[in-house]
Simulated scan of single mutants.
Amino acid sequence: MNAQPRSLATTLFPIALLLIAMASIQSGASLAKSLFPVIGAQGTTTLRLIFASVIMLLLLRPWRAKLNASTLKTVLIYGMALGGMNLLFYMSLRTVPLGVAVALEFTGPLAVALYASRRAVDFLWIGLAVLGLALLIPVGQSGTSVDLVGASYALGAGVCWALYILYGQKAGAENGIQTAALGVVIAAFVVAPFGIAHAGSDLLSPALIPVALGVAILSTALPYSLEMVALTRMPAKTFGTLMSIEPAFGALSGLLFLNEVLSLTQWLAIAAIITASAGATLSLRRETQPLVAAD
């Protein structure tokens, strides 16, 4: 009689973690935009990752992870992808609304889901994704189009996100949640030169510490730790389907915290990308394995 409640709790636990992670990271992105006028997107990314590194080093003690040449290579690529994803995404937020940037970035995990599925129905999901992109990426002088450079940054972040997922699976299977800490430290080293070159000594301003610390917790330390736990306890279908609603979290966060009002066309584009991602994930074959092995 007690087995079923335990099974339900086991199922709901990683789902709750992933939803909290999505809400946290999008709220953090909204907060991060307040630092852009002072230290730019590059400096904001640098402070975010540095503070997050310190927090995660203290909490997770990643030096206890067991690394060999193969696992170290995986973690290095994972960390580099994480750094690139953060930097390019923040660069896109300079000129692109948060919800739109997240939708464009989400083409990365969508491509991963479509590649893993390879079924005839995937042409429908590809078509929906292309439709969403066509509605978002500027063509001509439409009043609802977004900045082309900003859109390119967001798509580049999507490529890094795809690598983050692929190598996060491998790294998480080998060292669990400690991988998140190692990845953030590596990402900080990758991004720091860009932030220093852009903002210089402004990065050392004590007035920035409270906001930067909040961004680090909301956007990196908390969500990436929760996400790594969820990755190890959730089938690929469930994880991918839930991650599909990330653009909606971004759009709502932008509306609530940044007063970024999207047009009907942009909302339809986001809906198309969400539907494509969810559909691609749900069409995965039943034999698909979890994204990473459970602990």
Rank of each mutant, 00 (worst) to 15 (best):
L35H: 04
F36V: 01
F36K: 07
F36R: 06
F36M: 07
P37K: 04
P37W: 08
P37C: 08
P37M: 11
V38L: 15
I39M: 10
I39A: 05
G40F: 06
A41I: 09
A41R: 01
A41V: 03
A41T: 02
Q42D: 15
Q42Y: 13
Q42T: 07
Q42L: 09
G43L: 13
G43W: 12
G43V: 11
G43S: 11
T44H: 01
T44M: 05
T45F: 00
T46V: 09
T46G: 11
L47D: 08
L47G: 04
I50M: 14
I50K: 01
I50H: 13
I50C: 13
F51H: 12
A52C: 01
A52H: 04
S53Y: 07
S53N: 05
V54H: 11
I55F: 14
L57D: 00
L58A: 15
L58I: 11
L58V: 14
L59W: 13
L60G: 07
L60S: 06
L60W: 13
L60I: 10
L60D: 08
R61M: 12
R61W: 14
P62K: 02
P62I: 04
P62C: 05
W63L: 02
R64I: 10
R64P: 00
A65F: 09
A65Q: 10
K66Q: 14
K66G: 00
N68P: 09
N68A: 00
S70Q: 15
S70V: 15
T71F: 10
T71C: 11
T71Q: 08
L72T: 15
L72H: 11
T74A: 15
T74H: 14
T74R: 12
V75C: 02
V75S: 04
I77R: 06
G79D: 01
G79I: 04
G79C: 04
M80S: 14
A81L: 04
A81I: 03
A81S: 11
A81G: 03
L82C: 12
L82K: 01
G83T: 09
G83D: 13
G84A: 07
N86L: 12
N86I: 08
L87C: 11
L88P: 05
F89R: 05
Y90I: 00
Y90D: 01
M91V: 09
S92M: 00
S92H: 06
R94H: 12
R94V: 14
T95S: 00
V96N: 03
P97A: 10
P97R: 03
P97E: 02
G99Y: 04
G99R: 08
G99T: 09
V100P: 03
A101L: 08
A103D: 04
A103R: 00
L104K: 05
E105P: 02
E105H: 04
E105G: 00
F106V: 05
T107F: 10
G108H: 09
P109H: 02
L110N: 05
A111W: 03
A111T: 07
A113C: 10
Y115G: 12
A116D: 02
A116P: 00
A116K: 11
S117D: 06
R118P: 11
R118D: 12
R119V: 13
D122P: 06
F123I: 15
W125I: 02
I126A: 03
I126T: 06
G127M: 05
G127I: 05
L128T: 02
L128W: 01
A129W: 06
A129S: 10
